[in-house]
Design a protein around this nucleic acid. Structure first.
Lengths: 131, 131
DNA sequence: ATCAATTGCGTAATGCTATAACGTGTGCGA
DNA sequence: TCGCACACGTTATAGCATTACGCAATTGAT
């Protein structure tokens, strides 16, 4: 999917996520944007919805947070599966793509005649510097 | 981890999950147990906490729900990774374990010196009968 | 037997996450 | 210029999870 020109709200939310060193919850984003005129959760959620659709932001289901894609120049939809290692110490996220894991999972799903639409792979633990 | 004798509340919650054909949210479980004296969310969450610890119940992060382990006789903590295919049509969940995927992920994490503590793999889509 | 520590339980209150429902304004093609 | 699509703003509400407090039962060491 191509990324069209972002709107004002989408740009604000994206910039906040890009500058952050760790994933942010929607409400944290809201607080960071109050000075920019944000007043309600929906302003954040609507922007996030589009950013997720464009593939420039990922949602981390296991911690109800959002993070900017680590590979801004490529198209995340072409990567197949995306997996995340989330450090519970510093909050940092390492994003990675592995075609081996991808294929293996897809083969299994195929054998079950299961049509995959969305995948979540999140590993929680401690990164090199925090363990 | 061994599974000790379950308490009354733990048994009630576990039975509800075992009889269910799809994952249930904590509040849905609460509603199903009102006739058994349940009145507050915490009664459910406390039971779930233990059941998760014993490995007889899994939490599905992507849909904020809980499901009984599909392999009651084995010890889920010995399985390494557990992955789930969740049907958005009928809600049914297929649980599976794949050592190949497991090893591949663990190798990658090792190369990053990342200490994994908990993993979430959830595929959402449509099962054979719902697609 | 007794005391202390642990564990489970009940209740109320609160906090965090996400969406529904309404209406407004703007740009653009038929 | 009409109709449509889309982004936006606001209020209210729904859904998920935890904090804090106190009580009762159990266990286990002295």
């Amino acid at each position: 999917m191509n990324t069209p020109q972002l709107t004002k709200n989408q740009t604000l939310v994206f910039d906040v996520l890009t500058k952050a060193e760790a994933p942010l919850s929607a409400y944290t984003i809201l607080d960071k944007l109050r000075d920019n005129g944000f007043r309600a959760p929906l302003q954040v959620y609507r922007a996030l919805e589009k950013l997720l659709e464009y593939g420039v932001v990922h949602r981390l289901e296991s911690i109800n947070s959002f993070v900017a894609c680590a590979h801004p120049n490529e198209d995340c939809h072409n990567h197949g599966l995306v997996a995340f290692a989330i450090c519970e110490g510093c909050g940092q996220v390492i994003e990675f793509h592995d075609h081996e894991v991808d294929h293996r999972l897809m083969d299994w799903l195929k054998s079950q005649k299961f049509k995959a639409e969305k995948a979540t792979i999140e590993i929680r633990g401690h990164c090199a510097t925090c363990s």
